[in-house]
């Protein structure tokens, strides 16, 4: 509700400025492609350790076939939403970039049993853009906050191909955590014709926010990937960073996943300053 009121207020302020000035208006869902690189070393370490565990535990005559590790780099299509004013040497806007990246990896025994890990990285970037605005080009810096949700789902796989989250195995589970961080970057908007613009921007989404830098020193802990279900055995509540070490809070994964974005998107704009 607060975000709705804030959005309407900002929208109203921007629109009143627009009505009284000869500025370009940009209000649009944008669609484009995002090249991203995420710092998910802990997830990769965890997956490698699980492969090692299964290889060590494999019965005689049974081989292990594992997918390659989780990717740090992604190319994906994405949607964005923008409300901006441009012209008179000024550019100001707000942008919202929701995005979700999902990866699945399986480690299978040759007898058909195995495990599938599904990693879901769901982010919402809320950005304020300020910079130089003109008829054909806008150049701006962008600054904002990211609200992120992470989910690692760990399924047991059976020879018939079915996947299960039953509580028979304590590796099964839905391990979740959340995080908020600062995001900053820069971008350029090229507006060759009326109604159509190309938005190119680089964004660095950090995993920490103002005031958080010393928080872990005080709390001595982070929100880690955890399964809160009452139906699960408490042997392994946190998703381990190392499957071959004792399962504990110390051997868990905190969401310190910084991310780089390079996005190119097509957006609608309405030119009024011809």
């Amino acid at each position: 509700m607060k975000s709705l009121v804030l959005s309407i207020t900002i929208g109203a302020v921007l629109m009143s400025s627009y009505i009284n000035a000869q500025l370009d208006l940009i209000f649009t869902p944008g669609y484009g492609v995002a090249f991203t690189k995420s710092n998910i070393h802990a997830i990769q370490d965890s997956y490698s350790s699980y492969i090692l565990l299964t290889e060590n535990d494999a019965p005689e005559g049974i081989t292990v076939n594992a997918d390659p590790n989780f990717d740090r780099k992604h190319i994906s299509d994405f949607l964005s939403f923008q409300l901006a004013l441009s012209g008179n040497w000024v550019y100001f806007g707000i942008s919202y970039m929701p995005n979700k990246f999902v990866q699945e990896r399986s480690v299978m025994y040759s007898n058909g049993y195995g495990r599938t890990f599904r990693w879901e990285d769901k982010r919402n970037e809320v950005l304020f853009d300020f910079g130089f605005g003109s008829k054909y080009i806008d150049v701006f810096g962008t600054f904002g906050v990211n609200f992120n949700k992470y989910r690692m789902t760990s399924y047991k796989v059976y020879p018939d191909g079915s996947k299960s989250l039953s509580n028979d195995f304590y590796f099964n589970g839905v391990f979740k955590t959340e995080d908020t961080g600062l995001a900053y970057g820069f971008g350029i908007k090229i507006k060759p014709i009326n109604f159509l613009a190309i938005d190119v921007r680089y964004l660095y989404a950090h995993h920490k926010i103002f005031g958080e830098y010393r928080t872990s020193d005080i709390t001595e802990g982070n929100l880690v990937l955890t399964d809160f279900s009452f139906a699960r055995s408490p042997v392994m509540s946190e998703f381990p960073q190392d499957f071959n070490a004792p399962y504990s809070y110390k051997n868990s994964i905190a969401p310190m996943f910084n991310k780089h974005y390079l996005t190119i998107s097509l957006i609608f704009h309405y030119r009024t300053n011809d």
Binding site: M1, S3, L4, S7, I8, I10, G11, A12, L14, M15, Y18, I19, L25, F27, T28, P29, F81, L83, I94, Y96, Y270
Partner: peptide
């Protein structure tokens, strides 16, 4: 047109919420 844009631009952010 301006009125239409006004409604759409505010509606867009309302929908996001």
């Amino acid at each position: 047109t301006k009125n239409l844009l006004y409604i759409l631009s505010i509606g867009l952010f309302a929908l996001i919420s």
